[in-house]
């Protein structure tokens, strides 16, 4: 991530944009040295589990164990607790950042892979879904993604990573968009056709002029990551999930 920001710093045309990127790099130094989170918004705890079908979980409930991990991590790690219950009424802080959002895939093997993606609210709030008509095709998808980044402007803390899902059903395409954020920054989709679309959208996004923190410049996005899935013959779902430059995720396999 920091390497991607350094590369963006080298090519940024706007002086105010370069200054923003310098501050972001300086902040990363201070954060590492003094154990202060990069950003105070330490996110919703999104956890992806890849559970090997031959693995056996014993001694308790896996979901409870994940939530206990989140509780301990956010409390002992001096991270901000941002989760509130009763979202459209009382909005009461749960005080330990639980519950985590947990997604489980059953995969071959006997291991358990856990991927934690703390997701900040500012960028998450800019997410959008469109159920396009198949006639809108590639152009419709491209326009929708570019327009989503354009209207988000400064809010998601650019330079962002643009996670895009294409295909599946409404919720599936959003899962693809979120999963796309886990990819190493700038690593292209293995399918040449999709990788080409990623390059094309990235170019258009970085021509928007939004720039670092929206102050004007080239580096609006560091990367566009697209994941695709077959879809119904009547459908063309597309989802965009943005990730601020402060992209943090860790994984462990046990």
């Amino acid at each position: 991530m920091l390497n991607a920001i350094k590369r963006a710093r080298e090519t940024e045309e706007s002086s105010i944009g370069r200054e923003v990127l310098d501050r972001i790099l300086e902040n990363a130094d201070i954060s590492a040295r003094e154990k202060i989170p990069l950003c105070q918004d330490t996110g919703t705890a999104v956890v992806f589990l890849e559970l090997g079908q031959d693995a056996c979980i014993v001694g308790g409930d896996l979901g409870s164990a994940i939530n206990e991990g989140v509780r301990q991590g956010y409390t002992e790690g001096y991270l901000r607790k941002s989760m509130v219950s009763q979202p459209c009424t009382a909005r009461i802080n749960t005080k330990d950042n639980t519950p985590a959002i947990i997604y489980t895939d059953i995969v071959p093997g006997d291991k358990l892979k856990i991927i934690a993606l703390p997701k900040g609210g500012g960028a998450e709030n800019m997410a959008r879904l469109a159920m396009l008509s198949p006639a809108q095709g590639r152009q419709g998808v491209t326009d929708f993604v570019v327009n989503t980044v354009d209207r988000a402007g400064s809010n998601p803390c650019p330079p962002v990573i643009v996670g895009v899902g294409i295909g599946g059903t409404a919720e599936k395409t959003f899962m693809l968009a979120k999963r796309a954020l886990l990819r190493k920054v700038g690593e292209p989709n293995p399918e040449a056709e999709v990788a080409e679309l990623e390059r094309e959208i990235l170019k258009r996004v970085n021509n928007l002029g939004i720039g670092p923190m929206g102050y004007g410049g080239r580096a609006t996005a560091l990367a566009v990551h697209i994941e695709v899935f077959p879809t119904h013959t009547t459908s063309l779902p597309v989802a965009v999930n943005l990730q601020c430059w402060c992209a943090r995720h860790k994984e462990a396999t046990i």
Binding site: I24, N27, E34, C39, M213, G214, C244, C246
Partner: peptide
């Protein structure tokens, strides 16, 4: 005024 999002460590100093 705009402060730079995500630079909470720097700002805290």
């Amino acid at each position: 005024f705009g402060a730079i999002g995500g630079t909470g460590a720097l700002i805290s100093k």
